[in-house]
Amino acid sequence: MQSYSDSFGLKRLAVVSVFASVAAVLGIVEAMIPFAVAIPGAKLGLGNIMVLACLYFFRTRDAVTLILLKTMLTSFVFGSFSAFLFSLAGAVCSLAVMGPMLRLGRSWFSLPGISIAGGVAHNAGQLAVAALVLGTTNIFYYFPVLIVSGLATGWLVGLAARRLVDALERSDVLQFMRVSSPVGTAGQAGKGG
């Protein structure tokens, strides 16, 4: 039984790693889109598609692994340590909001709703770190703009995540979740392991 659950864990780790690398690639693709020119600081947050899918199928701690991997990978590509810390602060805030929202149950929040909340939390986290660094809370004047843009981008990202989750549920990529999951069927694996 032990090896059974170990192989399950291994498969899960593999899938989470694939999710993380897809998220990193999405982050790189996103950096090529000159989106920040219109609203500086606003991001599409394409990587959040993978975080949402990960939260949906796996445990919250797997999503933590994902954002750590994703942030490290993109920081290696783009550079500085402070950028790494800023991204991480945003990602952690985002996850802290999206995790509990998803665990509340399917009837409460739609994936676009969760995605919007995560995006706004991401902005809030980054602004909080920026406020600490600059020693002023003045930059929160920018928050309303980011909330409004986060509504649009978060909704789109949520729709994309919805499609991905549906497709993954139809495909047999995550079949092992259903067959051998020690914690139940796919999508309910919230409190497993």
Binding site: L104, F109, S110, V120, V148
Partner: peptide
């Protein structure tokens, strides 16, 4: 749209207004 989404939008609307209010 689910019931939580409606609450979320309400909270965000309040946040936008309250951050703009001092201005």
């Amino acid at each position: 749209m689910k019931r939580g989404d409606v609450w979320l939008l309400a909270v965000l609307a309040v946040a936008v207004v309250s951050f703009k209010l001092p201005d």
